[in-house]
Amino acid sequence: MVSTKAKLNVDELKDILETYHNKECWTKTQEWFEPFKRNNIERAKFLTSIMYTPSVLTPQNTSKLIGDFNVLQGDIIKTKAAITNNPVVDDYNPMNETLYVIIPSSCSVQPGRYKWVLLARLSPIGELDTEPKRSYYENVLKFKNGKVFFFPPIKDINIGPIGFYAIFEEISYIENSILQSSLRVASLSEIGWHLLNAFIVNHLTRPSNGDYKARATAYPREWSIS
């Protein structure tokens, strides 16, 4: 259990996560979280405190970056218009409004720029009434499960009282032109956004060591301009 006197330097975590594209970032991130040990309440509480912006980002406070478009990568949206192919858990009903996070891509989502926008569905976490559910939850909180990412509860959203699993085993997407029919319910903070990026880089797009080795020699060490 975290001692009441233990203090963690969150700026340190922020600095680590800013290098989310580096190989060492994830190891350092996990080391930073080690003092939480198995205190999953405190761990979830911390993630809740850092994950979202205090209020949803709007075109007004980001207008110079995104023009009149009203969603950003890392926004949580509620919509019926998204498509989830082959949902892996039974709680998905296409007729109901569902929460999704807009997956960070190479740049912010802009009007007319892409036809489709990639999403990950947020599945509300139910009661942790059995050991497998508790263990699964703990594992996800510790970022050990590469298939799902933990999202804390969202203010004013009744479902997901102890959070959500963002499911990366499914393919979810929405057409850009109807994105604006969705309701934005939360935005990731800078640190939350980088944490999600680090997770994606290290779990979903991480190349194997073999890949590194195979690519390492694929360039000339010197280049003479003729």
Partner: peptide, 17 residues
């Protein structure tokens, strides 16, 4: 098994400040 206490939230108030 490090002997650390294991805790899990049971409701929203457990993890919201």
């Amino acid at each position: 098994d490090s002997g650390d206490e294991v805790t899990f939230p049971s409701s929203r108030k457990d993890i919201e400040g």
